[in-house]
Design a protein around this nucleic acid. Structure first.
Lengths: 395, 395
DNA sequence: GGAAGTTTATTAAGATCTTTGCAAAACCGG
DNA sequence: CCGGTTTTGCAAAGATCTTAATAAACTTCC
């Protein structure tokens, strides 16, 4: 319980080497000249030299002496670059139907990426696939489990921040009884962290944007969740932050007893399709009468001006806007970013949401669509894993 | 634009003196022995001695050599204590009808507290009172304006985080055209910060609680606002965070065009009274038929079991719970704390809100009433002002 | 091919700060 | 008045960064 902040001269060295390492990291995968580091850090050459020596010895960076380009007179510079292999991290996205694994090195290079779909729904089957995907990813990257420096797993459901246990996961039967966290901790000799998938998607979106202010990143598909990023940091609250699927919209909501929340039942992907089917039955002119109707078809029809589809989309947008408006008022986020399957709806949905939100809030946030592909969650997991490593670097 | 993080040996001294000063501060108004500081900081005696010497010279701390108690053999210890006078701060709570000023010294001692009510509503009149209250507070504390080290002003309305200008203030006519920030900056030679009053109340409540996690602190009176504290820090968002008064509740809302938000018109103090009056007219048995009815009377009647009042209170609680439920789901706060005039309603309202929230959220937060008196906002302002001073202490 | 010029690395001396160890001081109790 | 105890004070040593001067390596020009 002691503060134990031993401050002697050695801490200066630690401070400065950390500073140099940060500078090397900032130059990403490119090698950097020593003189450049001097400018970046504001330290003097001898100090930087000492720090670089220490860092090379510790294995964090490596010399890059094949003196490449930039020849314009003068003694050739010693150049160093981040030694990515020093601390590769593993990211996992465990979805109900798909398991994705990725391995990044310290420099952010992707060493492996494996995706496999899960045929039969169920927790034990899912766990088997997780193990297989991890094994394959490690093989692809040419790494042993011991070499991994941090693991972050994305899972649907609510995760207890302390233990990493999954407290609630309606989309995967039996998932709460599997102790994923302990299972992985046995395999890896490094920090393992389990996190809600929407949270990690939010983190990925926030990192993609230049200024990471306050962000509400919605994952909208069959289910509905959100991640909250505040000043660039993930917000967890008591653990279940961002569970917008359980917001109760004002209208009537179908009462399916499958563990989903009211808002999900009202405007989840399937609910959107169902709403459109009902509307189409009474309006013969709509293109939605032909063929099977899913959410994508509704948005496509609205995009080309189908009146029935347009009204459904507007209804959905209104319900969504009314649902999140209180949260937007309380948080005053810079942006609300939508990802997930419904995000593919594009501008049709977006403009409708923007319009309704403008009416309901004081400082309407920018409403956008996540620019990241389906790797969003994985990217967030890897990003958090890298954070973890960088956070505890001065070992 | 340079990082300019010059790291030489002198920074160690700065680091350590700051550490010592923090330790002295932690011992609050009590003097502290030098040997104690050695244990608290983990530094060595000569280092602490040097730091103390520097701090005394700079005026931050002072010797307390009247060797008081704790005589149990041995050479009498040199004892030092925080020199509060070194940096007194001014806090202001500018309400529509009342202006309060307080001056705290560094050690948290209250040097002055002045409250004055404003007869005639209006911006220019208000500004005059502000100046008078400041003058009186300075006089009481025996200080000149130049000696104040930080000023924080609480005002209703939305404050632009950058400029400190007031962007929206329905309760004070003309208040937005007064540049309060610049007005005060002219008088004081120190940082002046203008902040929304509900935000500062939230900060005060958060500081009062032991663990400052995530907190939604509602100010509920004629108007309705909230402050958001996340991990102990005030959250501003784009500037208008916490404006729950503008949440649109699901029912019908009276359309008074006085700049108030929908939720305020629905369940503000006056709206509660009006709701009760209407209900009482059709229910002869209620005690609310006798005499004038205000919000306090409604809650009092409900507390003693009046059926009509109970239903009104339950209605109000339901409306409130439904309004903030989405925000509670998104934030997952540890607690929702209610302050302001309506908070005096006590358990009657509280239990009703708790009940409704439990039904609408996943991890129902603790619902409580602010334990602080009507000085809540002032306390928050002073707290933030002290933060400001401590933040920039190693000048 | 050699000299000049440019950029970078290396080395040594100087300055600052913390730490360690020992001696002196001040006070209490007997 | 004298030991015991706690604290302070001082001087030397250790570690680090900085300044400044020197050496190295390479390009370019003549």
């Amino acid at each position: 319980m002691e503060e134990e902040r031993a401050v002697g001269t050695p801490v200066l060295r630690r401070l400065n080497t950390a500073s140099v390492l940060r500078a090397v990291r900032a130059c990403a995968p490119d090698p950097v000249r020593l003189a450049e580091l001097v400018e970046l850090t504001g330290l003097t050459r001898p100090t930087v030299g000492q720090a670089v020596e220490d860092l090379v010895e510790a294995g964090w960076i490596q010399h890059d002496h094949p003196a490449a380009a930039s020849r314009k007179g003068g003694r050739p510079a010693v150049r160093v670059s981040l030694r990515g292999r020093a601390a590769p991290v593993l990211g996992l996205d465990v979805g109900p139907h798909t398991v994705t694994a990725g391995i990044d090195d310290l420099a952010g290079r992707r060493l492996a990426a494996v995706r496999r779909s899960v045929e039969h729904n169920g927790a034990s089957r899912l766990l088997t696939v997780v193990d297989a995907v991890i094994a394959r990813a490690l093989e692809d990257a040419g790494l042993a489990a011991d070499e991994i420096a941090a693991v972050v797993v994305a899972t649907p459901g609510i995760v207890d921040p302390g233990s990493g246990r999954i407290l609630l996961a309606p989309s995967v039967p039996g998932w709460t009884s599997v102790n994923l966290s302990d299972h992985l901790r046995d395999r890896f000799r490094c920090p393992v962290r389990v996190e809600n998938d929407a949270n990690l998607a939010a983190l990925a979106v926030a990192r993609e944007r230049a200024e990471a202010g306050t962000l509400l990143a919605v994952q909208w598909g069959e289910r509905l969740g959100a991640g909250v990023v505040i000043d660039g940091r993930l917000h967890r609250g008591t653990g279940s932050a961002g569970e917008i699927g359980f917001i109760r919209p004002s209208g009537r909501v179908p009462d399916t007893d499958d563990g989903r929340g009211p808002l999900e039942r009202a405007i989840g992907a399937e609910a959107i399709a169902e709403q459109a089917r009902r509307a189409a039955r009474t309006h013969p002119g709509s293109v939605l009468r032909d063929g099977p109707v899913d959410a994508a078809a509704v948005f496509a029809a609205a995009a080309v001006g189908d009146a029935v589809a347009e009204r459904v989309v507007d209804d959905v947008a209104r319900t969504f806007a009314h649902a999140i408006a209180p949260a937007v008022l309380v948080l005053a986020p810079d942006a609300v970013v939508i990802g997930g399957g419904v995000a593919r709806a594009g501008p049709v949905l977006l403009t409708a949401i923007t319009r309704h939100l403008a009416d309901l809030t004081l400082a309407p946030p920018e409403v956008g669509i996540s620019g990241l592909a389906e790797d969003t969650i994985l990217t967030g997991a890897l990003s958090l894993a890298l954070d973890e490593v960088w956070h505890q670097l001065p070992a």
